[in-house]
């Protein structure tokens, strides 16, 4: 539908403008926090991609994120160029995802979860133990600074704009990927794998492809995180972080593109903000998470959609009613 396409682009532009104007109303602290939010949004999006659009629930996605971050830290000792380092992080994340994807993607459900988690922990143990190279449990500083060719980006605002542009770029990229034939086939395979195979598609390769893209994006987010934090520790490659990303995707709403960033926002805000008032923020997060999964109707985005549908149907009475309830039907079938 051309009209909705145009509307989406307008909305995207609107969102982009707001994002780019935000630094003017935020404090330095707020700017830094929001930069972190954008980075975690990219990470959450990468997991949301493979979970929501390829049906690959992974409990080990932090493996690629951590690899990206450590790449910047380690290779950054020898190479200064930010372009080289970021590309290296993406490449390594993608390569590792490709290799493990080839082996793991054939499995589903419990086995996939266990395999991804095991691989994640394997990397964690390696990075944790190789203290001489990685600083072990205490982590290592990232000595390189982000430099895109016009001087090092040291200020909070510089990092903000960079991460914001990265997020917008990733978002746009994923939008077209998901709409593309590859994306649609992967989604079809998530909804009903047998049907897609019956139609003649070799779903295995589509899943591997999506998994690799997910790994590349996670590596990208990890690299950004390395620059942002100037510090990397095994926490960035621990399966607990994979779990956090999972929480973000589910809370925000799996199977949508806006969902993961919203989930990331909720998580980062709770983590940074609420932690100053109460230590019990993981408890709040956990209960919210369980409630959402239990209720089974998706995350914040899905709830928002239903809310809107209800409002819209009240306004439009009969005409809109049938259309919106049919849309509701469609969403009910989408399990995380």
């Amino acid at each position: 539908m051309k009209k909705s396409e145009k509307n989406r682009i307008i909305l995207f532009a609107l969102g982009a403008i707001i994002i780019l104007l935000l630094p003017n109303v935020l404090s330095t602290y707020g700017i830094k926090l929001t930069s972190e939010l954008y980075i975690m949004s990219i990470f959450a999006l990468s997991l949301g991609l493979i979970m929501g659009y390829a049906g690959l629930p992974s409990f080990g996605h932090a493996a690629f994120f951590g690899l990206g971050a450590y790449t910047v830290a380690l290779v950054g000792k020898f190479v200064d160029s930010s372009y080289v380092l970021i590309v290296a992080a993406i490449a390594i994340g993608g390569l590792m995802a490709l290799l493990t994807g080839l082996l793991f993607v054939r499995n589903s459900g419990a086995y996939l979860i266990m395999l991804t988690m095991a691989f994640n922990q394997l990397l964690y143990v390696l990075f944790y133990k190789l203290t001489d190279y990685t600083g072990g449990a205490d982590g290592m500083s990232v000595s390189v600074r982000l430099d895109l060719g016009f001087g090092p980006l040291t200020g909070a605002k510089g990092m903000y704009y960079f991460t914001a542009i990265c997020l917008l770029g990733v978002f746009a990229l994923l939008y077209y990927l998901v709409k593309s034939p590859v994306g649609r086939i992967s989604y079809g395979s998530k909804v009903n794998d047998h049907r897609m195979k019956a139609l003649g598609y070799n779903t295995y390769w589509y899943k591997v492809f999506m998994y690799t893209v997910g790994g590349m994006l996670a590596g990208f987010a990890g690299a950004l995180y390395g620059y942002y934090n100037s510090f990397v520790s095994p926490d960035s490659i621990h399966w607990g972080l994979s779990g956090q990303a999972l929480i973000m995707v589910v809370i925000g709403g799996s199977g949508t593109l806006i969902g993961p960033p919203i989930g990331a926002a909720v998580f980062v805000i709770l983590q940074n903000y609420i932690s100053s008032y109460t230590d019990r923020w993981p408890l709040i997060m956990g209960i919210l998470f369980i409630a959402l999964v239990l209720y089974g109707r998706g995350g914040i985005v899905h709830m928002g959609q239903r809310l809107w549908a209800v409002l819209a149907s009240r306004l439009k009475k009969t005409g809109g009613q049938s259309r919106t309830s049919a849309e509701q039907e469609g969403y009910r079938n989408e399990a995380p």
């Binding site: 459900g109 979860i113 779990g243 019990r280 993981p282 956990g286 999964v293 399990a335 995380p336």
Partner: peptide, 17 residues
């Protein structure tokens, strides 16, 4: 399967805190 894993993971998170 997915829902189970997620819920039990949520329980892990909550009980830990």
């Amino acid at each position: 399967m997915n829902e189970q894993v997620l819920i039990t993971f949520g329980i892990l998170y909550v009980v830990q805190d």
